[in-house]
Design a protein around this nucleic acid. Structure first.
Length: 488
RNA sequence: GGUUCGUUGGCCGAGUGGUUAGGCACCGGUCUGCAAAACCGACUACGGCGGUUCGAAUCCGCCACGAACCUCCA
């Protein structure tokens, strides 16, 4: 396979050339959402980041198995009445079955992902559907001597693991610092060390999400689900594991330890982490209460939003920053992205209507290589976009009749734009769908042709009346050299 | 306190040793009946101090400020 894709591996903190473990195939696991609330802008970041990777790897010719889990078991919540898991708690409040809550938010998550044009993963396993696998994995770790049972719960023995392995390899932490700095939490007394983490928790009487295990009736610890499901579907060794940077510690650190302890080998070759979305410089998140849900973006129904923003604007906004940088949200930044995106998509539509000339006076030949180079450099989508804007200038010049392009260059340009805009960046026109059927389009064309006649007769009153009334209805009318363009 | 990372022009945001990133906004112009769109031009930056170098936004050191993680989190 002819490519030089470099991706940043959190393990080495360097960009590394990507070589799959198995020729032509890639296994990729990404931590998905906990479905106890609506998806917000922060959830869109990893979904879009790894959607781009999924699309690009597929474009390069790999057969990709992309696994993105659904955490529907919930995890311990650090509230006054802790011990009850998130999903169970929400269910009690709403007087619903836990799985009813889960289903509700999964449906909404899927709807938002579809709107953002995020391709569905190959497999979307639910933690609740893999309790057996999690119990088996926990048993393996126990058998290997890296876990212990205590009052019906099973804990990972971090100190013992660290004697023969490196707990902290991913996050750069060392165990001695952590022993000093870890805070006191409920259930600490059952654990030998504060750094130990739960593989299985015995359920308290009021805990409604519970399963039978050899140790107690309870529920799996937070980290074990990804170990169990990742290796079940991708094997004991696979290529890429992704997720948000906030999951690096403890979640991914624990996952590495669990896999090494239970399987005796390192499972993941490349660890990739997307950065956070900030709002006024602070992480946008549930716990801070400063998040904006995706639905609020799409409807504009939030105090911080000056207007609704379409899913594609949100997607484009995220792609205009590199995935490893924080990106600061503001309504002004969204508006700037929206305008840029509209210009790009207008140009893409214009490109389809251009006709080839005998020779090219614009230079567009290197575009494909430049975009590929940017993608190969750790998925640098902002650079890809900047190249597309450069080419956009050429498209507009040809469209205005100021420059020409030959048929071969035009075909190549169309091909590259289709590949990158639709195929890889996953941007789609949002005006097309709402523009409706052919008869409707022809009716608008008819009106605008009447306006064109009026203009030729210098009947500005009629001409302006048609334009102004259409504008009032939400149409955007642009005059061209000898015609018009419109969209709604 | 520890770990990891950041500080770029009016705003967003790329860029790791020498070359215009790009978008948005603003200003001037071309085109146009007018407007919009499009194009052309102009403006313009690398937190501070020191060091390495012929040359640093880019490498090194110190300082300042900020963030994430260390408790569920994308």
């Amino acid at each position: 396979m002819e490519h030089k894709l470099y991706i940043y591996n959190t393990l080495s903190r360097k960009k590394e050339q990507f070589f799959p473990l198995h020729e032509n195939k890639v296994g990729m696991y990404v931590c998905g959402p906990t479905v106890y609330g609506d998806g917000h802008l922060g959830h869109a970041r990893p979904a879009i980041t790894f959607d781009i990777l999924f699309r690009y790897l597929t474009h390069l010719g790999y057969k990709v198995r992309y696994v993105r889990n659904i955490t529907d078991v919930g995890h311990l919540e650090n509230d006054a009445d802790s011990g009850e898991d998130k999903i169970a708690k929400k269910a009690r409040l709403d007087q619903l079955e836990p799985m009813e809550v889960v289903q509700y938010y999964i449906n909404r998550y899927h709807k938002a992902m579809e709107a953002l044009n995020v391709l569905p993963p190959s497999i979307e396993p639910h933690a609740s559907g893999h309790i057996m696998e999690q119990i088996e994995f926990t048993q393996k770790i126990l058998n290997a001597g890296f876990a212990y049972e205590s009052e019906g719960s099973v804990y990972f023995d971090v100190e013992k693991y660290n004697q023969s392995n490196n707990y902290g390899i991913l996050s750069g932490r060392n165990i001695d610092d952590m022993l000093e700095t870890t805070r006191e939490l409920d259930g600490q007394s059952e654990k030998r060390r504060s750094v130990d983490f739960a593989l299985w928790k015995k359920a308290s009487p009021e805990h409604i999400m519970r399963w039978k295990a050899p140790w107690s009736e309870g529920f799996p610890g937070w980290h074990i689900e990804c170990s169990a499901m990742g290796t079940k579907y991708l094997g004991e060794e696979f290529d890429i594991h992704g997720g948000g940077m906030d999951l690096m510690f403890p979640h991914h650190e624990c996952e590495i330890a669990q896999n090494k302890a239970g399987l005796g080998k390192d499972t993941v070759k490349y660890w990739m982490h997307n950065n956070m979305i900030t709002i006024a410089g602070q992480k946008m998140g549930k716990s801070l209460g400063n998040f904006i849900t995706l639905e609020e973006f799409f409807t504009g129904n939030h105090a911080l939003l000056t207007k609704p923003f379409s899913p594609m604007t949100v997607r484009f906004f995220i792609l205009q920053a590199h995935y490893r940088s924080t990106v600061d949200f503001s309504s002004a930044a969204l508006e700037a992205s929206e305008k840029g995106l509209n210009r790009l998509m207008d140009g893409y539509a214009r490109l389809q209507k251009l006709t080839g000339a005998s020779n090219s006076t614009v230079e567009t030949a290197g575009l494909r290589a430049k975009c590929e180079e940017a993608m190969n450099d750790d998925l640098n989508t902002p650079i890809v976009i900047s190249h597309l804007f450069d080419a956009l200038k050429a498209i507009n010049l040809v469209h205005d009749g100021k420059e020409t392009i030959n048929a071969a260059d035009l075909d190549e340009l169309k091909s590259v734009f289709a590949l990158y805009i639709e195929g890889i960046l996953g941007l789609k026109s949002e005006t097309e769908a709402s523009a409706g059927n052919e008869a409707y389009k022809k009716a608008i064309d008819l009106l605008l042709n009447m306006r064109l006649d009026a203009k030729r007769n210098k009947d500005w009153a009629t001409s302006d009346k048609i334009r102004n009334e259409l504008t009032a209805l939400g149409f955007e009318i642009k005059d061209t050299k000898d015609g018009f363009e419109w969209k709604i």
